[in-house]
């Protein structure tokens, strides 16, 4: 990778009070890539994603976006630099309609782009178009995940961070969601960094992957390579997959 990576995480350590969650994590995401971060419960995946977003703040190391150090910036400033986040548990606004949720996603966007971007999201997720006046909280889990992704896309991000998009969804819906994530990367040119427990789907989709264990990067490599790796298979894939 001669080109400067879009996102570079260098030696990041993060603490929750006295408990150290990340022990010097290094990873990079190049422009246009899909990178997956897999690992068991409590490995520090979500912590890493949230550290990239500035909350909690890294106590050591650096997070760089296109070379700019964003380690110490507050979340909303990081988002302003073209990073959109699909948070864990989706976190849509339950009392607001689908349309209003998407409007909220466009808070940072250019108003003139709104109609076009809305159309783009509705084309990607026709279900959302059908339910545009329905309250977010009354949608099914899969629809809420679509809404969370659609909302994140409304700001025209350069980098999309997804935290466990498959969480609590039926296998069929999981497949659909991953298919859409692939399309966002390939058709829209959005760089994607994805945190997943569902190693099979994540690694099949990703260009490259990292395996996180106990707050350290254990393995890294091309998605297919990791999928074939004996250690990964033993730890994250045996016992059937979706």
């Amino acid at each position: 990778m001669a080109e400067q990576p879009m996102l570079a995480v260098a030696g990041v350590t993060t603490f929750y009070g006295a408990i150290q969650a990340l022990h010097g994590v290094d990873l990079e995401v190049a422009r246009g890539e899909i990178v997956a971060l897999i690992g068991a419960n409590g490995a520090g995946k979500s912590t890493l994603l949230m550290t990239i977003c500035g909350s909690p703040r890294a106590s050591g190391g650096a997070v760089r976006l296109d070379g700019e150090d964003i380690t110490a910036l507050p979340t909303h400033e990081i988002v302003r630099r073209g990073v959109a986040q699909v948070p864990e548990g989706r976190r849509i606004f339950p009392r607001m309609s689908v349309f209003e949720n998407l409007q909220m996603g466009a808070t940072l966007g250019v108003p003139a782009h709104f109609a076009h971007d809305l159309e783009r999201v509705f084309t990607m997720f026709p279900r959302l178009a059908e339910r545009r006046d329905q309250r977010g909280g009354t949608l099914s889990g899969g629809e809420q995940q679509m809404l969370a992704i659609g909302r994140a896309l409304m700001s025209r991000p350069r980098l999309l961070l997804l935290d466990e998009p498959s969480l609590g969804l039926a296998p069929l819906i999981v497949r659909q969601i991953f298919e859409v994530i692939g399309r966002i990367a390939r058709e829209e040119g959005v760089t994607i960094f994805l945190v997943e427990q569902n190693a099979y789907h994540a690694l099949r989709l990703a260009d490259r992957g990292y395996v996180l264990a106990n707050g350290r990067v254990r393995l890294s490599g091309a998605g297919r390579e990791l999928l074939a790796n004996a250690e990964v298979r033993a730890a994250y894939l045996e016992g059937g997959h979706a």
């Binding site: 977003c53 979340t75 909303h76 988002v79 302003r80 959109a84 948070p87 808070t107 994140a152 700001s155």
Partner: peptide, 9 residues
């Protein structure tokens, strides 16, 4: 939390 993730201060 979701608001911060959308760039709202």
């Amino acid at each position: 939390t979701a608001c911060r993730a959308l760039g709202i201060n």
